[in-house]
Amino acid sequence: MIRLMKYELRKSWYLKAILLLVTAVAEAVFLIGLWGGKDSLTATGVLLLTILATTGTMVIGLGTVFVLHRDINTKQSCMLFMTPHSSYEILGAKLLENAISILLIGAFFFGLGALDITLLFAKEQALDRLWQIMSEMLRTINENLTIDAPHLAAFLWMLIADWLTTVVTACLADVLSASLLAGKRFSGLISVLFFLALNVALNWLIRLIMNQIPTDFVTSCVVGGCLSIVLGAAMYVVTAVLMERKLSV
């Protein structure tokens, strides 16, 4: 299993390397602006970093799906599917590698963000002020929102759970399309359609269940996240079964 994951990482390291490289550039811009006193550069840096942080994890997730697509639909499929591993292990390795990468990259950006914010306001010596401003902003959105550990943690949990499940959904869509169409012309398009359909169904189901539960922000995030994970796990099993029984590469 670890070996499978090792190769999954090798297959996608290119993407991750580019992400890190662009992040390094953005960080450099930010730092130059900060120390050079060029506010425009600092702001650009912050903007770039924020975009990278939010899209970075998405890109990694997409990367996993693309690699799966390639592994199923090109001649390279022999490499993976002739090994004595079950589809559960093969798919599981991909998803695990993806999850770990997302968590690591997420933690990386979190750390970087914390570092940068500290730098920014250490310079301006207004860290408290930042906190106040942000809390006020949130209060105007919703009375009950505050930035504190539980809220942040719950929110992040839901975000990550949601995203991981989205990746599994995309994998299922791709395998479904490949199994039914056997690489015919529009299989890529069809898998996107499957994906959208599955997403809609999933969201509908989650909303249905969530409406039964009276919630506050933290609980809804936590429960929502858990629900996502459960559904994600179910889809993982379905995808693996499809790969094992129906998929011809």
């Binding site: 090798r10 001649k75 022999c78 004595p84």
Partner: peptide, 25 residues
């Protein structure tokens, strides 16, 4: 099984191919 077309990952070297086979077989 050896398929007709080339199927090794393009980022590999001959040494990597050996390592891969060694890892899995």
């Amino acid at each position: 099984y050896m398929s007709t077309e080339p199927y090794f990952y393009t980022w590999m070297s001959a040494k990597d191919v050996g390592k891969y086979y060694e890892d899995f077989f």
